[in-house]
């Protein structure tokens, strides 16, 4: 396991923070931590990294107790509001972060060139950070997080300051890192991001963990069909796949776990003289799950 926590709790004078969070993150997976603003997501990461001290419970990161200084050599972290000395240039920032990682000077220089390419800041490295846009600051922060080629990467709202193109670039970076076998712990409230990149998800609400599981376990994304000439014969065929399907007029809602069943469903409709106008999985299911979990009123 890359990360394990057991009843980890951090509270401020008995309030806020998070309570009794137990979870584990496996090697090579993208683990997303979902929650509203103020749910305790950032506090959780900051506690894992030793910036805050836990009130109770324990945690292991790469097999060592959380807060272990040497372990941080293999950890990357992009804080939610990436702040760093704005009087430095992007290059100087990365160079100094390399020194903080105790990397060798020539190793840092070589790695900076790679990182600048990855985060798309080539040509901007000699500008002062105070001249950077929000998105550029976020990218240089991401660059700093991946500088040491970490095994475990914590990204706290990595796309919050980015435009759609910037978000896509960050997603691509996440996929690339995942393909390289890195483990990523992603804090976000952007559900669309989570659906695209995550292997497992946990939902935190008011400091308490409400749900945890793989995307598949948590999301039973129903299949929606719109069928013309929808006969009883078609319905009976489809019930062989989902006996509990719901039908309203020409619209059918089914629970289908395996994508392998989809051609069979289309075949059943067409062979029985049905007209298949539409067949797709229902969108925004994570949003539904999230709202149901944390409460609609709270979300508003």
């Amino acid at each position: 396991m890359m990360l394990e926590t057991y009843n980890l709790t951090k509270q401020f004078n008995g309030k806020g923070g998070f309570k009794d969070v137990s979870l584990s993150v496996r090697e090579g997976e993208v683990f997303s931590f979902l929650g509203k603003n103020g749910a305790g997501k950032s506090t959780f990461i900051r506690t894992l990294l030793g910036i805050l001290y836990p009130t109770s419970g324990m945690g292991l990161m790469l097999g060592k107790p959380i807060g272990d200084v040497e372990t941080r050599k293999k950890i990357g972290y992009l804080p939610e509001l990436f702040q760093y000395h704005t009087w430095l240039t992007g290059y100087e920032l990365l160079y100094n972060h390399g020194l903080l990682y105790k990397m060798k000077k020539n190793e840092i220089k070589a790695r900076i060139d790679e990182v600048l390419k990855i985060v798309g800041l080539e040509g901007h490295e000699h500008k002062k950070i105070k001249q950077y846009s929000k998105g550029m600051k976020q990218r240089i922060g991401l660059g700093s997080a991946i500088l040491s080629d970490p095994l475990l990467l914590f990204l706290d709202e990595p796309t919050s300051a980015l435009d759609p193109l910037g978000r896509k670039q960050v997603r691509d970076i996440i996929f690339k890192l995942k393909n390289e076998g890195k483990t990523i712990f992603l804090n976000t409230h952007l559900l669309s991001e989570v659906e695209l990149v995550s292997d497992r998800v946990a939902i935190l609400d008011k400091g308490e963990m409400k749900k945890i599981g793989t995307m598949k376990e948590l999301l039973h994304s129903p299949l929606m069909l719109s069928v013309g000439n929808c006969s009883e014969k078609i319905i009976n065929e489809l019930k062989k796949i989902d006996p509990l399907l719901e039908r309203v007029g020409n619209d059918i809602k089914m629970s289908v776990e395996r994508d392998n069943d989809l051609p069979k469903i289309a075949d059943s409709v067409v062979k029985n003289d049905g007209l298949l106008y539409m067949m797709k999985r229902k969108e925004n299911v994570l949003e539904e799950l999230f709202i149901n979990t944390v409460g609609e009123e709270d979300v508003r």
Binding site: R72, I75, Q83, L100, F154
Partner: peptide, 14 residues
């Protein structure tokens, strides 16, 4: 106050 220690203390430095 500026939140700089998040970036610094997440590195291997005591």
């Amino acid at each position: 106050e500026q939140g700089n220690y998040d970036a610094i203390l997440s590195k291997p430095i005591s």
